[in-house]
């Protein structure tokens, strides 16, 4: 019973984050900002829903498979996102910002 409550809280929170990310991708003003909206659904939306499902697993192998999907999503999504952002940059799409600045070299 407790597990079901924990699971419900997690999947509902994940669903809320997923929908917010969806709102973000529609609402944010330019392409580079929209990437952040997609980032929300890919990280916390997917993470919370899959973690929530883990608590409902009838067998430990099911939980491990959910973990495998989660690890796969969390490793491939930033790579795909970066490839996309970099391709857009190289195609001449300029981020709509005030200024580009050099960082004081850290470390």
């Amino acid at each position: 019973m407790t597990l079901e409550i924990v699971s419900s809280v997690l999947v509902i929170a994940g669903a809320i984050f997923a929908v917010i990310g969806g709102i973000g991708i529609v609402r944010l003003p330019d392409f580079f900002c929209r990437i952040h909206g997609a980032g929300i659904t890919d990280t916390l939306g997917a993470g919370l829903i899959l973690t929530g499902l883990m608590f409902l697993s009838p067998h430990w192998i099911v939980a491990v498979k959910l973990l495998a999907i989660l690890v796969l999503l969390w490793t491939t999504s930033p790579t795909a996102t970066h490839a996309l952002a970099n391709a857009a940059l190289e195609a001449g799409l300029k981020p709509n910002v005030d200024e580009t600045e050099e960082a004081p070299s850290s470390l």
Partner: peptide
């Protein structure tokens, strides 16, 4: 970020930085 997306004024200020 989620709170900023749902807030009415959309309080974002995009920046590009090099590190």
């Amino acid at each position: 970020v989620a709170l900023r997306i749902v807030r009415p004024g959309l309080p974002i200020r995009p920046r590009v930085i090099r590190v």
